[in-house]
Amino acid sequence: MKLYKVAEQFAAWLVAVIVLSLLLVPIVMIVLTSLTPESFPTIPDGDVTLYWYSEMLSNTELMQALVTSFLVATCAAILSGIVGTVAAIGFVRSEISYREELATLMLLPLMISPVITGLAIIQFSSQADLPSGYPTLIIGHSILTLPYVFLIVRSRLVTFDDDLREASRVLGANGLETSLNITLPVISPTVISAMVISFVVSFGEFTATQFLIAPDATTVPVIIYTMLRAGLSPEISALSTLLIAIMVLGALISGAVTRST
């Protein structure tokens, strides 16, 4: 019995270590290989250098892609933040038939493979004479991130106290004043957190994005993929480490905003 217990405990810990290693080792690999003094991405044994970071910073194409990614992610987060919040408010408040089915429709961009979404949007955009590059990228990313905002804001609204709205109405505010003065401020941390998530998702999206880019508007993940095709290099690791830093920062901001309520 005693031995059996020990074996059980050992197995449990072993699984935990394996799973956490699977999840975290790839990320650690990126960070470590970005510091190598070698010309190929290997774990540095003792000697570390920031050479690949300076290489990266002097690469104008990379820097341009960073700016593009930043612009696209910001605009997409704002767009999906607005559309997703408005839709979530509508869905929670209205009593339409097929409400649940229609809400599931809002989640379709999560279920349909991003390859198909990207293909459909670039086809549509060229047929509808939408300017390629930024407008197409931003609209495409706003669609890909819309389900996140919708889901997160909707679940916050479900726990939103309806009494607050009613209290505001009785205190003399009309529906619009109530939405602006009460609903929005109360749910705003959630909306901001959802928009940060959208930003991060957009910033890292590759699969749909590869269809939507234009020569003057290329995002960082697409650059990473293109470089990867040409062969591994510590410079890719450096660029990826920068992205990891931005994404972890996003996670921290989102966590801090949510905790503040």
């Binding site: 106290d161 009494d163 607050l164 009613e166 209290a167 505001s168 401020p185 109360v186 309520t261």
Partner: peptide, 9 residues
Amino acid sequence: FQSSALFPH
């Protein structure tokens, strides 16, 4: 209201 319904912000 039953819940007081004070505005938390």
